[in-house]
Design a protein around this nucleic acid. Structure first.
Lengths: 248, 248
DNA sequence: CGTGATCTTGAAGGGGGTCAACTGGAGTGG
DNA sequence: CCACTCCAGTTGACCCCCTTCAAGATCACG
Protein backbone atom coordinates (compact mmCIF):
# COMPACT_ATOMS: atom_id res chain seq x y z
CA UNK A 1 0.00 0.00 0.00
CA UNK A 2 1.45 3.36 -0.97
CA UNK A 3 1.17 5.99 1.69
CA UNK A 4 2.66 8.97 -0.07
CA UNK A 5 -0.55 10.36 -1.45
CA UNK A 6 -2.55 9.76 1.67
CA UNK A 7 -0.30 11.39 4.23
CA UNK A 8 2.27 13.70 2.72
CA UNK A 9 1.64 17.28 1.81
CA UNK A 10 4.13 19.72 0.39
CA UNK A 11 3.27 22.63 2.63
CA UNK A 12 1.52 23.12 5.93
CA UNK A 13 0.88 26.06 8.22
CA UNK A 14 3.18 24.74 10.95
CA UNK A 15 6.00 23.90 8.59
CA UNK A 16 9.25 25.81 9.22
CA UNK A 17 9.37 28.77 6.84
CA UNK A 18 12.96 28.57 5.64
CA UNK A 19 15.44 25.78 5.13
CA UNK A 20 17.70 27.18 7.81
CA UNK A 21 14.78 27.16 10.24
CA UNK A 22 14.07 23.61 9.26
CA UNK A 23 17.60 22.40 9.97
CA UNK A 24 17.70 24.27 13.24
CA UNK A 25 14.38 22.69 14.18
CA UNK A 26 15.79 19.27 13.36
CA UNK A 27 18.86 19.80 15.54
CA UNK A 28 16.61 21.07 18.33
CA UNK A 29 14.41 17.98 18.09
CA UNK A 30 17.47 15.75 18.30
CA UNK A 31 18.50 17.55 21.46
CA UNK A 32 21.47 19.46 20.07
CA UNK A 33 22.52 23.09 20.71
CA UNK A 34 20.89 25.99 18.90
CA UNK A 35 22.57 27.43 15.81
CA UNK A 36 25.58 26.06 13.96
CA UNK A 37 23.76 25.20 10.76
CA UNK A 38 24.68 26.61 7.37
CA UNK A 39 21.53 28.14 5.83
CA UNK A 40 22.91 27.56 2.32
CA UNK A 41 22.73 23.77 2.50
CA UNK A 42 21.31 22.08 -0.57
CA UNK A 43 19.81 18.74 0.37
CA UNK A 44 16.66 19.40 2.39
CA UNK A 45 15.08 16.78 4.61
CA UNK A 46 11.43 16.36 3.71
CA UNK A 47 8.72 17.62 5.96
CA UNK A 48 5.80 15.21 6.09
CA UNK A 49 2.37 15.47 7.59
CA UNK A 50 0.54 12.32 8.68
CA UNK A 51 -3.14 11.83 9.38
CA UNK A 52 -4.39 9.39 12.01
CA UNK A 53 -3.75 5.75 11.03
CA UNK A 54 -1.48 6.82 8.16
CA UNK A 55 1.36 4.38 7.61
CA UNK A 56 4.78 6.02 7.51
CA UNK A 57 6.73 2.87 6.68
CA UNK A 58 5.93 -0.78 6.11
CA UNK A 59 7.68 -3.67 7.79
CA UNK A 60 10.03 -5.25 5.26
CA UNK A 61 9.94 -2.33 2.83
CA UNK A 62 13.33 -1.17 1.55
CA UNK A 63 14.80 1.44 3.85
CA UNK A 64 15.46 4.65 1.96
CA UNK A 65 14.83 7.27 4.64
CA UNK A 66 15.02 7.61 8.38
CA UNK A 67 12.44 9.70 10.19
CA UNK A 68 12.46 12.06 13.13
CA UNK A 69 9.12 12.63 14.84
CA UNK A 70 8.34 16.33 15.05
CA UNK A 71 4.84 16.31 16.56
CA UNK A 72 2.19 13.76 17.41
CA UNK A 73 2.97 10.12 18.08
CA UNK A 74 3.28 6.82 16.25
CA UNK A 75 3.28 3.14 17.13
CA UNK A 76 5.80 0.65 15.78
CA UNK A 77 4.20 -2.69 14.98
CA UNK A 78 5.54 -6.07 13.96
CA UNK A 79 3.09 -8.56 12.51
CA UNK A 80 3.85 -12.08 13.66
CA UNK A 81 3.20 -15.31 11.81
CA UNK A 82 -0.36 -15.88 12.97
CA UNK A 83 -1.44 -12.30 12.31
CA UNK A 84 -0.94 -11.09 15.86
CA UNK A 85 0.20 -7.48 15.94
CA UNK A 86 3.05 -6.95 18.39
CA UNK A 87 3.53 -3.29 19.30
CA UNK A 88 7.25 -2.75 19.85
CA UNK A 89 7.44 0.97 20.56
CA UNK A 90 5.60 4.22 21.11
CA UNK A 91 7.37 7.04 19.26
CA UNK A 92 7.11 10.60 20.54
CA UNK A 93 8.59 13.90 19.30
CA UNK A 94 12.37 13.67 19.00
CA UNK A 95 12.33 9.92 18.40
CA UNK A 96 14.16 8.44 15.43
CA UNK A 97 12.27 5.89 13.36
CA UNK A 98 13.67 3.26 11.04
CA UNK A 99 17.19 3.19 12.36
CA UNK A 100 16.97 -0.38 13.62
CA UNK A 101 16.49 -1.47 10.00
CA UNK A 102 19.55 0.30 8.63
CA UNK A 103 21.95 -2.62 8.86
CA UNK A 104 19.59 -4.95 7.01
CA UNK A 105 18.38 -2.40 4.51
CA UNK A 106 14.67 -2.71 5.22
CA UNK A 107 12.21 -1.48 7.80
CA UNK A 108 11.97 -3.65 10.90
CA UNK A 109 8.51 -2.40 11.87
CA UNK A 110 5.40 -0.86 10.40
CA UNK A 111 5.09 2.68 11.75
CA UNK A 112 1.57 4.04 12.12
CA UNK A 113 0.49 7.52 13.18
CA UNK A 114 -1.75 7.49 16.26
CA UNK A 115 -3.04 11.01 15.60
CA UNK A 116 -2.16 13.95 13.40
CA UNK A 117 1.62 13.97 13.31
CA UNK A 118 4.51 15.55 11.49
CA UNK A 119 7.92 14.04 10.80
CA UNK A 120 11.13 14.87 9.02
CA UNK A 121 12.12 12.30 6.43
CA UNK A 122 15.87 12.03 6.00
CA UNK A 123 16.95 10.14 2.88
CA UNK A 124 20.05 8.13 3.73
CA UNK A 125 22.24 10.07 1.33
CA UNK A 126 20.97 13.37 2.73
CA UNK A 127 21.60 12.19 6.26
CA UNK A 128 25.14 11.17 5.37
CA UNK A 129 25.71 14.53 3.75
CA UNK A 130 24.22 16.54 6.59
CA UNK A 131 26.22 14.67 9.21
CA UNK A 132 29.49 15.37 7.39
CA UNK A 133 28.63 19.00 6.77
CA UNK A 134 27.34 19.93 10.22
CA UNK A 135 29.25 18.59 13.22
CA UNK A 136 26.53 19.98 15.49
CA UNK A 137 23.90 17.91 13.73
CA UNK A 138 26.15 14.87 13.71
CA UNK A 139 26.63 15.16 17.46
CA UNK A 140 22.91 15.68 18.03
CA UNK A 141 22.17 12.70 15.79
CA UNK A 142 24.64 10.56 17.73
CA UNK A 143 23.01 11.48 21.02
CA UNK A 144 19.55 10.92 19.60
CA UNK A 145 20.59 7.39 18.64
CA UNK A 146 21.84 6.91 22.19
CA UNK A 147 18.45 7.97 23.54
CA UNK A 148 16.83 5.61 21.06
CA UNK A 149 18.85 2.70 22.39
CA UNK A 150 18.08 3.70 25.97
CA UNK A 151 14.42 3.84 25.02
CA UNK A 152 14.53 0.29 23.68
CA UNK A 153 16.17 -0.78 26.95
CA UNK A 154 13.37 0.95 28.84
CA UNK A 155 10.83 -1.09 26.88
CA UNK A 156 12.69 -4.24 27.82
CA UNK A 157 12.71 -3.08 31.45
CA UNK A 158 8.94 -2.80 31.46
CA UNK A 159 8.53 -6.24 29.92
CA UNK A 160 11.00 -7.79 32.34
CA UNK A 161 8.85 -6.96 35.37
CA UNK A 162 7.17 -9.94 37.00
CA UNK A 163 3.61 -8.76 37.44
CA UNK A 164 1.29 -6.83 35.17
CA UNK A 165 0.79 -4.08 37.74
CA UNK A 166 4.53 -3.43 37.94
CA UNK A 167 4.85 -3.33 34.16
CA UNK A 168 2.09 -0.74 33.99
CA UNK A 169 3.63 1.31 36.79
CA UNK A 170 6.95 1.35 34.92
CA UNK A 171 5.26 2.41 31.70
CA UNK A 172 3.39 5.24 33.42
CA UNK A 173 6.63 6.53 34.95
CA UNK A 174 8.42 6.26 31.63
CA UNK A 175 5.66 8.22 29.89
CA UNK A 176 5.70 10.80 32.67
CA UNK A 177 9.45 11.28 32.26
CA UNK A 178 9.14 11.62 28.50
CA UNK A 179 6.30 14.06 28.98
CA UNK A 180 8.45 16.20 31.26
CA UNK A 181 11.34 16.14 28.79
CA UNK A 182 8.97 17.40 26.11
CA UNK A 183 7.95 20.29 28.31
CA UNK A 184 4.50 18.92 29.07
CA UNK A 185 2.98 18.05 32.41
CA UNK A 186 4.51 14.99 34.06
CA UNK A 187 1.29 14.43 36.03
CA UNK A 188 -1.43 14.80 33.41
CA UNK A 189 -0.87 12.29 30.63
CA UNK A 190 -2.79 11.52 27.49
CA UNK A 191 -2.48 8.00 26.14
CA UNK A 192 -2.34 7.93 22.37
CA UNK A 193 -2.42 4.13 22.38
CA UNK A 194 -5.68 2.24 22.78
CA UNK A 195 -5.82 -0.41 25.51
CA UNK A 196 -5.21 -3.26 23.12
CA UNK A 197 -2.04 -1.68 21.68
CA UNK A 198 -0.70 -0.66 25.06
CA UNK A 199 -1.33 -4.16 26.36
CA UNK A 200 0.61 -5.55 23.41
CA UNK A 201 3.52 -3.19 24.13
CA UNK A 202 3.53 -4.31 27.76
CA UNK A 203 3.18 -7.99 26.92
CA UNK A 204 -0.17 -8.70 28.54
CA UNK A 205 -3.83 -9.25 27.65
CA UNK A 206 -5.83 -6.05 27.32
CA UNK A 207 -8.22 -7.27 30.00
CA UNK A 208 -5.29 -7.55 32.38
CA UNK A 209 -4.24 -4.02 31.50
CA UNK A 210 -7.71 -2.78 32.32
CA UNK A 211 -7.64 -4.55 35.66
CA UNK A 212 -4.19 -3.15 36.46
CA UNK A 213 -5.39 0.38 35.77
CA UNK A 214 -8.36 -0.23 38.08
CA UNK A 215 -6.11 -1.58 40.81
CA UNK A 216 -3.80 1.45 40.71
CA UNK A 217 -6.81 3.77 40.60
CA UNK A 218 -8.54 2.11 43.55
CA UNK A 219 -5.30 2.40 45.51
CA UNK A 220 -5.50 6.14 44.92
CA UNK A 221 -2.24 6.33 42.96
CA UNK A 222 -3.79 7.74 39.79
CA UNK A 223 -7.07 8.48 38.07
CA UNK A 224 -8.08 7.00 34.74
CA UNK A 225 -10.64 8.58 32.44
CA UNK A 226 -10.55 6.69 29.20
CA UNK A 227 -7.20 7.83 27.74
CA UNK A 228 -6.61 10.64 30.24
CA UNK A 229 -4.35 9.83 33.17
CA UNK A 230 -3.55 11.87 36.23
CA UNK A 231 -0.80 10.73 38.56
CA UNK A 232 -1.72 11.33 42.20
CA UNK A 233 1.08 9.62 44.12
CA UNK A 234 4.24 9.37 42.04
CA UNK A 235 6.33 8.19 45.01
CA UNK A 236 4.13 5.20 45.66
CA UNK A 237 3.98 4.39 41.94
CA UNK A 238 7.77 4.34 41.97
CA UNK A 239 7.75 1.97 44.91
CA UNK A 240 5.49 -0.43 43.04
CA UNK A 241 7.52 -0.05 39.83
CA UNK A 242 10.63 -1.21 41.68
CA UNK A 243 9.05 -4.44 42.87
CA UNK A 244 10.97 -7.39 41.48
CA UNK A 245 9.21 -10.24 43.25
CA UNK A 246 5.66 -11.27 43.85
CA UNK A 247 4.10 -9.61 46.88
CA UNK A 248 3.99 -11.90 49.91
CA UNK B 1 35.60 2.08 41.46
CA UNK B 2 38.46 2.01 38.99
CA UNK B 3 38.72 -1.16 36.99
CA UNK B 4 41.77 -0.43 34.92
CA UNK B 5 44.25 -2.12 37.21
CA UNK B 6 42.21 -5.24 37.66
CA UNK B 7 41.48 -6.10 34.08
CA UNK B 8 43.60 -4.17 31.60
CA UNK B 9 46.98 -5.24 30.34
CA UNK B 10 49.14 -3.32 27.92
CA UNK B 11 50.11 -6.20 25.69
CA UNK B 12 48.85 -9.69 24.93
CA UNK B 13 49.74 -12.44 22.46
CA UNK B 14 46.52 -12.02 20.47
CA UNK B 15 46.72 -8.25 20.27
CA UNK B 16 46.98 -6.80 16.75
CA UNK B 17 50.61 -6.12 16.00
CA UNK B 18 50.39 -2.69 14.40
CA UNK B 19 48.07 0.28 14.78
CA UNK B 20 46.89 -0.08 11.20
CA UNK B 21 46.02 -3.71 11.90
CA UNK B 22 44.17 -2.61 14.97
CA UNK B 23 42.02 -0.09 13.14
CA UNK B 24 41.31 -2.56 10.36
CA UNK B 25 40.34 -5.11 12.97
CA UNK B 26 37.98 -2.59 14.55
CA UNK B 27 36.26 -1.82 11.25
CA UNK B 28 35.97 -5.54 10.57
CA UNK B 29 34.36 -6.14 13.94
CA UNK B 30 31.87 -3.38 13.26
CA UNK B 31 30.96 -5.06 10.01
CA UNK B 32 32.55 -2.57 7.62
CA UNK B 33 34.58 -3.23 4.46
CA UNK B 34 38.26 -4.15 4.57
CA UNK B 35 40.87 -1.42 4.10
CA UNK B 36 40.31 2.32 3.94
CA UNK B 37 42.14 3.15 7.15
CA UNK B 38 45.09 5.49 7.34
CA UNK B 39 47.95 3.67 9.13
CA UNK B 40 49.41 6.99 10.32
CA UNK B 41 46.52 7.85 12.63
CA UNK B 42 47.57 9.14 16.01
CA UNK B 43 44.84 8.46 18.54
CA UNK B 44 44.78 4.72 19.17
CA UNK B 45 41.79 2.93 20.69
CA UNK B 46 42.93 0.92 23.69
CA UNK B 47 43.08 -2.80 23.55
CA UNK B 48 41.91 -4.33 26.82
CA UNK B 49 41.96 -7.86 28.13
CA UNK B 50 39.40 -8.99 30.68
CA UNK B 51 39.47 -11.99 32.96
CA UNK B 52 36.32 -13.84 33.98
CA UNK B 53 34.09 -11.73 36.25
CA UNK B 54 36.15 -8.61 35.55
CA UNK B 55 34.02 -5.47 35.52
CA UNK B 56 34.47 -3.36 32.39
CA UNK B 57 32.19 -0.54 33.51
CA UNK B 58 30.06 0.25 36.52
CA UNK B 59 26.44 1.33 36.36
CA UNK B 60 26.30 5.06 37.03
CA UNK B 61 30.01 5.66 36.47
CA UNK B 62 30.88 8.61 34.23
CA UNK B 63 31.01 7.55 30.61
CA UNK B 64 34.44 8.28 29.14
CA UNK B 65 34.82 5.45 26.65
CA UNK B 66 32.66 3.19 24.54
CA UNK B 67 33.68 -0.41 24.02
CA UNK B 68 33.58 -2.87 21.17
CA UNK B 69 33.71 -6.53 22.11
CA UNK B 70 36.51 -8.29 20.25
CA UNK B 71 36.37 -11.79 21.74
CA UNK B 72 34.60 -13.56 24.57
CA UNK B 73 31.30 -12.35 25.99
CA UNK B 74 29.93 -10.06 28.69
CA UNK B 75 26.66 -9.57 30.50
CA UNK B 76 25.07 -6.17 31.09
CA UNK B 77 23.49 -5.92 34.52
CA UNK B 78 21.32 -3.35 36.23
CA UNK B 79 20.96 -3.59 40.00
CA UNK B 80 17.45 -2.72 41.12
CA UNK B 81 16.40 -1.16 44.39
CA UNK B 82 16.08 -4.34 46.42
CA UNK B 83 19.39 -5.75 45.22
CA UNK B 84 17.93 -7.90 42.47
CA UNK B 85 20.30 -8.12 39.50
CA UNK B 86 18.47 -7.67 36.22
CA UNK B 87 20.49 -8.91 33.24
CA UNK B 88 19.66 -6.65 30.29
CA UNK B 89 21.90 -7.98 27.55
CA UNK B 90 24.41 -10.61 26.47
CA UNK B 91 27.23 -8.95 24.52
CA UNK B 92 29.12 -10.94 21.89
CA UNK B 93 31.99 -10.02 19.54
CA UNK B 94 31.10 -6.98 17.43
CA UNK B 95 28.71 -5.58 20.03
CA UNK B 96 29.05 -1.98 21.19
CA UNK B 97 28.91 -1.40 24.94
CA UNK B 98 28.10 1.80 26.78
CA UNK B 99 26.39 3.63 23.95
CA UNK B 100 23.01 3.70 25.68
CA UNK B 101 24.60 5.86 28.38
CA UNK B 102 26.04 8.47 26.01
CA UNK B 103 23.16 10.95 26.20
CA UNK B 104 23.16 10.97 29.99
CA UNK B 105 26.91 10.88 30.39
CA UNK B 106 27.12 7.80 32.58
CA UNK B 107 26.98 4.05 32.15
CA UNK B 108 23.47 2.59 32.14
CA UNK B 109 24.62 -0.91 33.10
CA UNK B 110 27.44 -2.74 34.83
CA UNK B 111 29.26 -4.79 32.22
CA UNK B 112 30.88 -8.00 33.44
CA UNK B 113 33.04 -10.43 31.48
CA UNK B 114 31.61 -13.95 31.45
CA UNK B 115 34.92 -15.49 30.42
CA UNK B 116 38.27 -14.35 29.11
CA UNK B 117 37.44 -11.51 26.77
CA UNK B 118 39.07 -8.70 24.83
CA UNK B 119 37.58 -5.35 23.95
CA UNK B 120 38.56 -2.13 22.25
CA UNK B 121 38.05 0.91 24.42
CA UNK B 122 37.23 4.03 22.44
CA UNK B 123 37.55 7.26 24.42
CA UNK B 124 34.79 9.60 23.27
CA UNK B 125 37.25 12.13 21.85
CA UNK B 126 39.09 9.39 19.97
CA UNK B 127 35.83 8.04 18.60
CA UNK B 128 34.80 11.48 17.42
CA UNK B 129 38.18 11.93 15.79
CA UNK B 130 38.21 8.53 14.13
CA UNK B 131 34.72 8.94 12.75
CA UNK B 132 35.60 12.25 11.14
CA UNK B 133 38.89 10.96 9.78
CA UNK B 134 37.70 7.66 8.36
CA UNK B 135 34.36 7.59 6.54
CA UNK B 136 34.61 3.80 6.31
CA UNK B 137 34.82 3.54 10.07
CA UNK B 138 32.04 6.08 10.51
CA UNK B 139 29.76 4.06 8.26
CA UNK B 140 30.68 0.81 10.00
CA UNK B 141 30.07 2.49 13.35
CA UNK B 142 26.69 3.74 12.20
CA UNK B 143 25.66 0.27 11.09
CA UNK B 144 26.96 -1.26 14.29
CA UNK B 145 24.71 1.09 16.24
CA UNK B 146 21.82 -0.01 14.06
CA UNK B 147 22.57 -3.64 14.91
CA UNK B 148 22.77 -2.66 18.55
CA UNK B 149 19.30 -1.15 18.42
CA UNK B 150 17.97 -4.19 16.59
CA UNK B 151 19.55 -6.36 19.26
CA UNK B 152 17.75 -4.44 22.00
CA UNK B 153 14.50 -4.95 20.07
CA UNK B 154 15.26 -8.64 19.86
CA UNK B 155 15.60 -8.76 23.66
CA UNK B 156 12.24 -7.05 23.97
CA UNK B 157 10.79 -9.57 21.51
CA UNK B 158 11.92 -12.45 23.71
CA UNK B 159 10.45 -10.85 26.81
CA UNK B 160 7.17 -10.08 25.06
CA UNK B 161 6.40 -13.74 24.44
CA UNK B 162 3.57 -15.16 26.50
CA UNK B 163 5.04 -18.40 27.82
CA UNK B 164 8.46 -19.28 29.19
CA UNK B 165 8.99 -21.98 26.59
CA UNK B 166 8.43 -19.51 23.73
CA UNK B 167 10.81 -17.00 25.30
CA UNK B 168 13.50 -19.66 25.53
CA UNK B 169 12.88 -20.81 21.95
CA UNK B 170 13.30 -17.23 20.74
CA UNK B 171 16.51 -16.82 22.71
CA UNK B 172 17.96 -20.03 21.33
CA UNK B 173 17.17 -18.94 17.77
CA UNK B 174 18.65 -15.51 18.41
CA UNK B 175 21.83 -17.05 19.77
CA UNK B 176 21.99 -19.44 16.84
CA UNK B 177 21.70 -16.55 14.37
CA UNK B 178 24.38 -14.56 16.16
CA UNK B 179 26.57 -17.66 16.24
CA UNK B 180 26.22 -18.07 12.47
CA UNK B 181 27.02 -14.40 11.89
CA UNK B 182 30.20 -14.87 13.89
CA UNK B 183 31.23 -17.77 11.70
CA UNK B 184 30.54 -20.38 14.35
CA UNK B 185 28.18 -23.31 14.25
CA UNK B 186 24.49 -22.35 14.36
CA UNK B 187 23.61 -25.77 15.78
CA UNK B 188 26.18 -26.28 18.53
CA UNK B 189 25.95 -23.45 21.05
CA UNK B 190 27.82 -22.74 24.25
CA UNK B 191 25.97 -20.69 26.85
CA UNK B 192 28.27 -18.27 28.61
CA UNK B 193 25.47 -17.26 30.99
CA UNK B 194 24.60 -19.37 33.99
CA UNK B 195 20.96 -20.42 34.40
CA UNK B 196 20.19 -17.71 36.90
CA UNK B 197 21.51 -14.93 34.64
CA UNK B 198 19.83 -16.28 31.52
CA UNK B 199 16.59 -16.58 33.45
CA UNK B 200 16.94 -12.95 34.48
CA UNK B 201 17.54 -11.90 30.88
CA UNK B 202 14.42 -13.80 29.81
CA UNK B 203 12.31 -12.52 32.69
CA UNK B 204 11.56 -15.80 34.45
CA UNK B 205 12.59 -17.79 37.51
CA UNK B 206 15.66 -19.95 36.96
CA UNK B 207 13.67 -23.03 37.91
CA UNK B 208 11.24 -22.25 35.10
CA UNK B 209 14.17 -21.92 32.69
CA UNK B 210 15.44 -25.32 33.75
CA UNK B 211 12.01 -26.84 33.18
CA UNK B 212 11.67 -25.17 29.77
CA UNK B 213 15.01 -26.62 28.70
CA UNK B 214 13.84 -30.05 29.84
CA UNK B 215 10.57 -29.68 27.95
CA UNK B 216 12.29 -28.76 24.68
CA UNK B 217 14.81 -31.55 25.19
CA UNK B 218 12.15 -34.17 25.88
CA UNK B 219 10.34 -33.04 22.73
CA UNK B 220 13.52 -33.90 20.84
CA UNK B 221 14.12 -30.34 19.62
CA UNK B 222 17.52 -29.93 21.25
CA UNK B 223 19.93 -31.52 23.69
CA UNK B 224 21.17 -29.83 26.84
CA UNK B 225 24.40 -30.74 28.58
CA UNK B 226 24.99 -28.15 31.24
CA UNK B 227 25.98 -25.11 29.12
CA UNK B 228 26.35 -27.00 25.86
CA UNK B 229 23.36 -26.90 23.52
CA UNK B 230 22.76 -28.75 20.28
CA UNK B 231 19.78 -27.83 18.14
CA UNK B 232 18.18 -30.90 16.60
CA UNK B 233 15.01 -29.51 14.97
CA UNK B 234 15.37 -25.84 14.14
CA UNK B 235 12.14 -25.76 12.12
CA UNK B 236 10.04 -26.96 15.02
CA UNK B 237 11.83 -24.57 17.40
CA UNK B 238 10.87 -21.75 15.02
CA UNK B 239 7.26 -22.91 15.07
CA UNK B 240 7.22 -22.76 18.87
CA UNK B 241 9.03 -19.41 18.89
CA UNK B 242 6.26 -17.89 16.77
CA UNK B 243 3.50 -18.89 19.16
CA UNK B 244 1.73 -15.80 20.43
CA UNK B 245 -1.08 -17.39 22.41
CA UNK B 246 -1.38 -20.07 24.99
CA UNK B 247 -1.74 -23.55 23.50
CA UNK B 248 -5.33 -24.80 23.47
C1' DC C 1 35.91 -36.77 50.06
C1' DG C 2 33.66 -32.77 51.97
C1' DT C 3 31.86 -28.27 50.83
C1' DG C 4 29.56 -25.01 48.20
C1' DA C 5 27.63 -23.52 43.85
C1' DT C 6 24.98 -24.81 39.98
C1' DC C 7 21.35 -27.27 38.03
C1' DT C 8 17.22 -30.15 38.18
C1' DT C 9 12.89 -31.86 39.89
C1' DG C 10 8.73 -31.82 43.03
C1' DA C 11 4.62 -29.62 45.28
C1' DA C 12 1.56 -25.89 46.33
C1' DG C 13 -0.63 -21.68 45.51
C1' DG C 14 -1.69 -17.48 43.03
C1' DG C 15 -1.53 -14.32 38.94
C1' DG C 16 -3.01 -13.73 34.52
C1' DG C 17 -4.62 -15.69 29.93
C1' DT C 18 -8.84 -16.90 27.94
C1' DC C 19 -13.71 -16.75 27.18
C1' DA C 20 -17.83 -14.31 28.01
C1' DA C 21 -21.06 -10.68 29.24
C1' DC C 22 -21.99 -5.92 30.12
C1' DT C 23 -21.43 -0.81 29.64
C1' DG C 24 -20.86 3.37 27.10
C1' DG C 25 -19.74 6.40 23.34
C1' DA C 26 -19.36 7.35 18.18
C1' DG C 27 -21.14 6.93 13.81
C1' DT C 28 -25.05 5.75 10.66
C1' DG C 29 -29.47 5.79 8.69
C1' DG C 30 -34.36 5.80 9.28
C1' DC D 1 -34.66 12.15 17.64
C1' DC D 2 -34.06 7.44 18.23
C1' DA D 3 -32.95 2.54 17.05
C1' DC D 4 -29.13 0.01 15.50
C1' DT D 5 -24.44 -1.26 14.94
C1' DC D 6 -19.69 -1.37 16.07
C1' DC D 7 -15.78 -0.77 18.75
C1' DA D 8 -13.30 0.40 23.09
C1' DG D 9 -13.21 -0.49 27.65
C1' DT D 10 -14.45 -2.87 32.02
C1' DT D 11 -15.63 -6.67 35.01
C1' DG D 12 -16.53 -11.62 36.22
C1' DA D 13 -15.38 -16.74 36.20
C1' DC D 14 -12.46 -20.54 35.26
C1' DC D 15 -8.23 -22.79 35.14
C1' DC D 16 -3.50 -23.36 33.65
C1' DC D 17 1.35 -21.67 33.76
C1' DC D 18 4.72 -19.86 36.49
C1' DT D 19 6.51 -18.23 40.89
C1' DT D 20 7.89 -19.68 45.15
C1' DC D 21 9.66 -22.79 48.57
C1' DA D 22 11.93 -27.06 49.19
C1' DA D 23 14.85 -30.98 48.42
C1' DG D 24 17.64 -33.77 45.63
C1' DA D 25 21.33 -34.26 41.92
C1' DT D 26 25.45 -32.94 39.72
C1' DC D 27 29.67 -30.56 39.26
C1' DA D 28 33.90 -27.80 40.58
C1' DC D 29 37.45 -27.40 43.70
C1' DG D 30 40.26 -27.52 47.75
Amino acid sequence: MDTRNTSCTAAAPTQPSSYADLLRDLVRLLGGPEGGVDPAARTPPLFRRLTEDAVLAHEGAPLRSLYVVRSGSLKCVRTLGDGYEQVTALALPGDVLGFDGLHRGHHATTDVALEHATVYALPLSTLHDLRRRYPALDRAWHEALSRQLASASATADMLAAVTAEVRLARFVLWLSARSRELGWSPRRLRLSLCRRDLASLLGMAHETLSRSFSTLAQAGLLTVDNRELELLDVDEIQVRARTTRRPE
